[in-house]
Every structure is written in structure tokens, then in C-alpha cells.
């Protein structure tokens, strides 16, 4: 899922201080799971902003709404009849949701309430870690299901670099060397022969290098 983290409240206050009617718009998908922008976070942020401005002697209207998703037309349409009641929207969705809402409601400022971090997994309670960089041409079949693109700082594709020590990456002692993980996994799978095969030059045109990416599926179009 997409991992995001809450923006500092001070930053959000700065963003919204000039608006009188503010809608806090949550998203029920990834940001709910990573506890950054779901219904609960909407309630907390709205309450905090209400109290902050009240204490400052300012009367502001702060509305709350959480959509099923902010990356689909039909859910974003649900706020069409209330959008004009607000001067600005703080979207707690990932960058996709904020942008999609901004595209739809051209005259309403859309402000991000979270920082979108990565595509990751919920490794432990309170710990989310990156697993994918959406490079567009998956190599996991060759690497024992561990991604050298997202988990190796250098994105090297043929074994570890010289910075790998005791299974850790030179960038931090808390960061596993992706290639150490790959080798351990290939050994467990009894597929170390795969490790010896030199990976072909990777097609990076499917990554960000090729500009913004789109997926078109004629078979599902109506």
C-alpha cells in the first residue's frame, strides 16, 4: 500500500490560517491503514484546528469528511455538493488523492495534510517499510522475491556492492543489505544458481526516467 505520514500540525496551521471555512478530507484506503489520513486522523486534525483557532479568538468552520477513496471519480463526486461551502480543503490522502481532487475542483485550494513516503508494508505495529518503487518491470522472480530496486540504496542488480558488511548496508547499520537478503533467500530456495546468472540490462524506461507513466487497458474500457 501507499505509506504516508502526518504533516506536522504547525505546517498545516500555516497552510490553512488564511481560510475561514476548511474541509478536512480523509481517505479510507492506504492512509487509513498506515494511520495517517483516515476517519480517525480527520477527527483529530479537525479537533486540533478548531481548538487552535478558537484559542486564537478566530471563528472558523472546520468540516470533516472521509471518502472511500480519493483516487476515483465516483467517490470524489460525493463532495461536489458541499465543496463550495469551503474556502480550502486539507486532503489527508496520498499525493494521488490530493492531485485528483485538485483536478476535479479547480477553484478550491487543495492542501496536503500528509507527506506521501513510499509503497511499503506494515512490518510491525507502528513500523512501515518500503518494498517497491514501481519501476515498471519487476525483477522479483530472479531475486528470490526481494527487490534490489527498492531495498538496495544503489539499486544494484548483480550482487552486493563493497558497502555490505555483516548483512547491513553502509548507509545505516539499521538497513539490511538487500543483496544479503536475496542471497539468504536464494540459498533457502536452493536456487543459488540464479545468483550466478548475470542480470540483463534493466529497462529503466518503464521507471520514472520515461516521464509520468500511464496504464491503458482497452479490454476494460467502456
Amino acid at each position: 500500500m501507499i505509506i504516508a505520514e502526518k504533516k506536522p500540525i504547525e505546517e498545516i496551521i500555516q497552510e490553512v490560517k488564511d481560510f475561514d471555512r476548511i474541509l478536512i478530507l480523509g481517505c479510507n484506503e492506504c492512509v487509513t491503514v498506515c494511520e495517517a489520513g483516515g476517519k480517525k486522523e480527520v477527527e483529530v486534525l479537525a479537533s486540533v484546528l478548531r481548538m487552535y483557532f478558537m484559542a486564537q479568538g478566530q471563528e472558523k468552520t472546520i468540516g470533516e469528511r472521509t471518502l472511500e477513496r480519493q483516487c476515483d471519480h465516483e467517490y470524489l463526486e460525493e463532495i461536489r455538493n458541499i465543496i463550495d461551502d469551503y474556502d480550502a480543503v486539507v486532503s489527508l490522502a496520498c499525493g494521488v488523492g490530493v492531485q485528483f481532487a485538485a483536478e476535479k475542483y479547480l477553484t478550491t485550494p487543495l492542501l496536503p495534510g500528509v507527506n506521501t513516503i513510499c509503497l511499503g508494508a506494515n512490518e510491525d505495529r507502528g513500523l512501515w517499510t518500503e518494498r517497491c518503487q514501481a519501476c515498471g518491470s519487476c525483477v522479483l522472480a530472479r531475486t528470490g522475491g526481494i527487490c534490489p530496486v527498492s531495498r538496495c540504496a544503489k539499486r544494484v542488480l548483480n550482487g552486493p556492492c563493497g558497502g555490505s558488511t555483516n548483512g547491513k548496508c553502509e548507509i545505516s547499520k539499521d538497513t539490511d543489505c538487500a543483496w544479503q537478503l536475496i542471497i539468504d533467500r536464494l540459498k533457502a530456495l536452493d536456487k543459488m544458481d540464479d545468483y550466478e546468472k548475470v542480470a540483463p540490462v534493466k529497462d529503466w524506461s518503464t521507471d520514472r526516467a520515461g516521464g509520468p507513466r500511464t496504464v491503458t487497458r482497452e479490454d476494460v474500457k467502456i
Binding site: I9, E10, V44, V48, M51, Y52, A55, Q56
Partner: peptide, 8 residues
């Protein structure tokens, strides 16, 4: 922490 931040 939040209450400190908003001056309560």
C-alpha cells in the same frame, strides 16, 4: 503533546 502545541 498536541495540547502543548496549540497553546492549551
Amino acid at each position: 503533546r498536541v495540547l502543548d502545541l496549540i497553546g492549551v
